[in-house]
Design a protein around this nucleic acid. Structure first.
Lengths: 396, 396
DNA sequence: CTGAAAGCGCTAACAT
DNA sequence: ATGTTAGCGCTTTCAG
């Protein structure tokens, strides 16, 4: 039988192989590569050089106890001499079926992720969980604009954490199509997919109760984006109901339920939406809200960032908080606490950490798991009873 | 000649192979794997199912122009039916020698990285560069404490960005031992390694000039950690000189040169070191400095974060800034600008972005490249001439 | 436009 | 304690 070149090659003894490899390397076979990238030493060439098997070299790196210390020393020494940088991580990943990294998908400009303290908290918690497990955290390049999902397919990871994306996000679909475990943080809520997040409805009801008890009936709401389309302004009830962001949808509907239960017609409650989640947009949203509805006694914001903007706008208008206007937030980030904001605190760092742990412990689990984090209503110095008609006439 | 099983196997035609694979799969060969992980479809099995070659299936994903649209449709359709998730990223990386990710090494708790605005800026810029190039950003889990460098070797990346680590960092050594391009941000300064950073010496001299011109001679310095060992307190001159952080070393020596040139004996200048880089540590450092040296008229901080702490401490002591005490920073982060701090501004976001671009454009380059970023002295409201003896006695 | 052949560099199971 | 064998899943010339 005729041998293929590779078969013949593989029948040569180690010394011959080395010689051949060297010759091929030296004279042209790799000429198409830039000369600088001189053919790296590999585990195989190292083994050949040493006259031992590849297994032995592999063991020298991965299972020191499987070798005599003396041989191991020789292997490592020769590796250094030959400039062998250790087993190639990609090849090892292919073989072991472990990439040693978890992917993070946040369909937002990364700039946003780094600016929003709540997002940073999640990121930090996740990073800590990864650090504990010794795995890398692979940020997937996915801007909200681009529909390009190739990056998701290209990511060599053992699982994904998806942070707060719309339910119709194409990147999310791509993630779910990959045969690796996935944990969603906050939103969307998907059957059969692990998730970690607060009980938004309950937390929002707590907050609403507080405002109802204070006596507020003339309220306005400032919320984050409700869809992937850029839209700033008043959001009618059907847009609220069809919001592609589950968190916003839940918070709004919880507010609606509570306030309707005390006789407020929700369709008359102004809800202002802002696409960007910044303090400035919070301020402009509050401006729009208060310009059109000056009778409002409380502005409920679905995030602290927006609420900080609302506070700034109140100041600009000469409205004293909470005497003239009540403002509330959501998240309980440090900046908000410092500002004395009445808000719902959620443990963002824990959220990220829980997501990481959940993901990394996947595999021994079969049923999807949902972790609900505790929230806490934190009454600060930005909420008080509305001024009565009397007070408005005669002063406090 | 006797055929090995694999040789024999490879001589079977496609239909037989499929049947065999199916049988083996079904009956025991993979019984050691958990049953849930039912053998995923692969490109090969898909090709077999379709009766085409692997090349064709590969092309369907990677080179649509190499197929009839009709065939491509059929391939993708069958893929969906079989639950084939597309080419495995790790296998592809092994074959193409491209991981599609850049590694980021910052030997600090990631928590720190996310809290320090200067670090966040760099991270953000780097993330933007990666996003533009469509490659992932792989955060390497490397806490300062652990000497464990395996994570560096395990990272499947095409290159590394190293942000501000000590020159004797073992993780850095591990990175440099990998046969991939590396760009260092800020420090250390290493021959033959690409680097991007400001001209610390020149910038510091600018700042020192400003203080000298104002008339300050009794100064104190507050600096970041000078070594990997946790050490808080006064740093004698030799510790300053032997600092393992090039940036700190340079800033201190530039200050020393400048102030010595106007007659100040540097060995009498108190330099307080803080291991942690937080506002609180800045405050405690300032306290230690001012407790021991109340005659100081200016506190020069090697970062804005420390300077913000110093401002807080000054307030706590009833010192008016800048009337009673001048405080300066370094970096020009937003918080500092808001506080009116006199500082050296450096474009942190650009720094990260430049590092990313530099790394991603490597390969067509041969000589190492160093990018020096412009800095700008920003005189704020925290620097003024020191009070004269007269003023001290008779008031301003 | 399609297919055959040849590995990328490594590890794990199973011998010895 | 060390070696043998058999791929992991893919892309890429090169030859039809």
């Amino acid at each position: 039988m005729k041998l293929t070149p590779s078969e013949w090659f593989s029948r040569c003894d180690a010394r011959r192989v080395v010689l051949l490899q060297w010759l091929l390397n030296r004279y042209g076979l790799f000429m198409n590569r830039p000369m600088r990238t001189r053919r790296q030493a590999t585990l195989a060439s190292l083994a050949a050089e040493l006259g031992v098997s590849r297994t032995t070299v592999s063991n020298a790196y991965n299972r020191p106890d499987q070798l005599s210390p003396e041989l191991r020393r020789r292997v490592l020494e020769t590796a250094r001499r030959l400039g062998y940088p250790g087993p190639d991580p990609v090849a090892r990943s292919l073989r072991t079926r472990k990439a040693g990294a978890v992917g993070l998908l946040l369909t937002e400009n990364l700039s946003y992720a780094f600016r929003d303290p709540a997002a940073v908290g999640v990121l930090e918690g996740l990073a800590l969980a990864c650090e504990d497990a010794g795995v890398g955290l692979h940020l997937v390049p996915a801007s909200p604009g681009r529909e390009e999902v190739a990056a998701v397919h290209r990511a060599g990871v053992d699982g994904f954490v998806v942070y707060s994306v719309p339910d119709d996000d194409p990147h999310l679909a791509a993630v779910l199509s990959r045969p690796v475990p996935t944990v969603i943080v906050d939103q969307p809520e998907l059957d059969g997919v692990d998730r970690v997040g607060p009980d938004d409805a309950a937390a929002t009801v707590d907050l609403a109760n507080h405002l109802v008890e204070l006596g507020h009936r003339q309220i306005g709401v400032l919320c984050m984006r409700l869809g992937r389309d850029r839209k700033d302004g008043f959001a009618p009830v059907d847009r609220q109901r069809e919001a592609h962001f589950h968190v916003q949808r839940t918070r709004l509907s919880a507010l609606a339920r509570k306030f309707e239960s005390v006789g407020v017609d929700w369709s008359t409650v102004p809800v202002v939406e802002r696409f960007e989640h910044t303090v400035d947009d919070g301020a402009s949203g509050a401006r729009q809200l208060l310009d059109a509805h000056p009778q409002v006694t409380a502005v409920i914001c679905t995030s602290d960032i927006l609420a900080l903007g609302a506070l700034a706008e109140a100041g600009r208008r000469g409205l004293r908080v909470p005497a003239d206007l009540t403002v509330t937030g959501f998240d309980g980030v440090a900046e908000a606490t410092r500002a004395g904001l009445t808000t719902v605190h959620q443990p963002v760092l824990e959220k990220g950490r829980a997501a990481g742990r959940l993901l990394l412990s996947a595999g021994d689990r079969v049923a999807p798991k949902v972790i609900t984090l505790p929230t806490e209503l934190r009454i600060g110095t930005t909420s008080a009873p509305p001024r009565t008609a009397e007070e408005l006439w005669f002063g406090p």
